[in-house]
Design a protein around this nucleic acid. Structure first.
Lengths: 226, 226
DNA sequence: AGAATGAATAATGAATGCAAAATTCAAGTC
DNA sequence: GACTTGAATTTTGCATTCATTATTCATTCT
């Protein structure tokens, strides 16, 4: 019955939370940047009240560091934090794979096969950007199939926290091939509806991803102060 | 050098976030309760600005539902949400067990043995409250030994979300025995430093816990409106 | 009487104002 | 010349104020 999708009114604070999160994830606001309330108020044409509410939320999400009486900075991702995050994301992906296997239907599999094939194509042609996009979408699709919104949300939140490493984590050709092989094996497990296998593979896949990021971060050294 | 533990000044908003979270977890604010900003301002003697910042954070944590222009309510835990949360908590506990096994030293094991023995004592004497406390502390100790602060924080957050079920989830004697048996097996795995085994056991333990809660929730029916 | 309408009241969303704290920067000291 | 000291400025934290939206309640109409 409810065809009319009830008018979504958002508060300024909610709107700002989303906008700022995007700016951080997309790199408009870089890790370590000072967050100037007056400047952002000017930028968005709002007062400090809703802006501060948004910052508090982002701080709770771990995207912003707020120090009392000293204002905020975009959270800087420390190598240690990456080392802590990836094992967690590994088990969450593993769980998603397990659940997805149990609920997978023919349509789901067909869609994943298509996305996978397209992604492999991009890999063959060395097209990094579309490859990355498809890769992300495949993982999102698995979470969708898993049918656990809380799990998906949690994963999304952790994913956002490591936004900063997106830019450093350019794969070497060997690592890229490794990732493709991981995905091939994952597809095989999906076709076989082998939840335990997929679970293990996804965890391993994340472990590889962690290695890539970790190498990149170590290579950069520890950029302590911006 | 930094022996002096730098003076912790907290903002009112931060303070309020903690207080309100406690009130929700402890049941002073019950699931479904309307949150009146004026009343809470009176109660704490603060203005609405920091209170609203705190509410926004709690909303982000999933403890409070905020509806634009209509104020907030303490989040009500739906059986479906429990069904979504427990598998997640299961894999997080499993990971904690695995990590803890790898880092466990003699002191850690001794401490866990002592806590376990004390908990079993409470079980034998049917002392539910101290049993529960010790049970919680054992799980916390495993997370501490695991040495992954992000993991511990995440688990804590999920734990808080299911605050409401704490009160409904009184175990039957059979379930209680089952829980003790789970813990016995977990201790055995710890002594053997068998991370894989502990991991599996902890996940199963959480599955049992989920069963208990789920039975209780279904029994209560779905209290839709407060 | 029961539903519907509209005024009165209360709550929320956001801007402004103000005091306290931090930062900046210039002057002074060693 | 580098380090300290302290005033001027900026920024932050919080209270207050104002506008908008909900809610309540009395009144009217069927």
């Amino acid at each position: 019955m409810n065809e009319h999708p009830l008018i979504a009114r958002r508060s300024l604070a909610t709107e700002l939370t989303g906008r700022l999160r995007d700016m951080i994830v997309e790199g408009t606001l870089k890790a370590g940047d000072k967050i100037s309330e007056p400047d952002l108020c000017d930028l968005f044409g709002v007062s400090r009240t809703p802006l501060r509410e948004a910052l508090k939320v982002l701080a709770a999400e771990g995207l912003v560091d707020l120090t009392p009486n000293r204002g905020g900075r975009v959270a800087r991702i420390a190598p240690e934090a990456v080392e802590e995050l990836f094992p967690i994301m590994g088990v969450l992906e593993a769980l998603a794979g397990e659940l997805a296997c149990a609920r997978l239907d023919a349509d789901d599999l067909a869609r994943l096969e298509a996305m996978h094939a397209e992604m492999v194509g991009h890999w063959r042609r060395g097209e990094w950007v579309p490859y990355s996009g498809l890769n992300r979408r495949i993982h999102e699709e698995i979470f969708r199939i898993a049918g656990n919104a809380t799990l998906a949300g949690l994963y999304q939140n952790l994913m956002v926290r490591i936004h900063a490493v997106r830019f450093v984590a350019r794969k070497t050709p060997e690592r890229w091939t490794e990732a493709i092989e991981d995905h091939e094996r994952m597809m095989a497990a999906l076709r076989a509806r082998d939840g335990a296998a997929l679970s293990g593979l996804m965890r391993e896949h994340l472990r590889h991803k962690a290695d890539v990021v970790h190498e990149a971060l170590r290579q950069l050294g520890a950029p302590e102060q911006g």
